[in-house]
């Protein structure tokens, strides 16, 4: 377990900024105590200092997880967000997509969001903007990338993809063993 290097921090923050923009600031400077990012076995964990102190007592090979896992660095040093980061992305997300109840299940099985399943979308979402996907009851379901801008979405045919799937909460069941 170690703090992130300069490069790793940049990779992580660039990725996060796609979803929450300048709200990253709120993650780092929190009123309720200091929080930090730590790297452990290629995973990035977001954890409070108090919990970190406890975790340093655990031998590295015995430590499984601490705080919240945000994602992992690939072998090529790219950063991948995991669905476990959703709890922090959802409250700060700048661009959101709501899916209709009928399309919920499809998204939770790992499929992209189609125009026919699109309930609402934030105004002026640009193409390839990171978005957080919600159900119509405002329950966060996952996140992805807008395939079309808001304007384009109005024109496309119903079967066109509007949000590319990146992660969804169905992974808690489907990929339980690879979450950390």
């Amino acid at each position: 377990m170690r703090p992130l290097t300069e490069e790793e921090t940049r990779a992580l923050f660039e990725k996060l900024a796609k979803y929450i923009g300048e709200n990253i600031q709120l993650l780092v400077d929190r009123p309720d105590g200091s929080y930090c990012f730590r790297l452990h076995k290629d995973r990035v964990y977001y954890v409070s200092e108090r919990i970190l102190k406890v975790a340093t007592n655990i031998p590295g090979d015995k430590l499984v997880s601490l705080g919240t896992c945000f994602g992992k660095f690939t072998k090529t040093q790219k950063f991948r967000l995991h669905v476990t980061a959703l709890d922090y992305l959802a409250p700060y997300a700048k661009y959101k997509v709501w899916v209709k109840p009928g399309a919920e299940q499809s998204f939770l099985y790992g499929n992209h969001v189609l125009k026919s399943g699109l309930g609402r979308i934030t105004e002026n979402t640009a193409q390839y903007q990171g978005v957080v996907v919600y159900s119509m009851a405002d329950v966060p379901l996952g996140f992805g990338v807008a395939a079309k801008s808001t304007q384009d979405c109005r024109k496309v045919d119903p079967m066109a993809i509007v949000v590319f799937h990146q992660a969804d909460v169905g992974e808690y069941v489907r990929h339980e063993e690879t979450l950390t």
Partner: peptide, 21 residues
């Protein structure tokens, strides 16, 4: 422990440290 990791993250538990001692 894998299921613990999944469950704790799913339920939004942020104050836990997991070890397999």
């Amino acid at each position: 422990l894998r299921s613990v990791v999944g469950n704790l993250h799913r339920l939004g538990v942020t104050n836990a440290v997991l070890s397999h001692c």
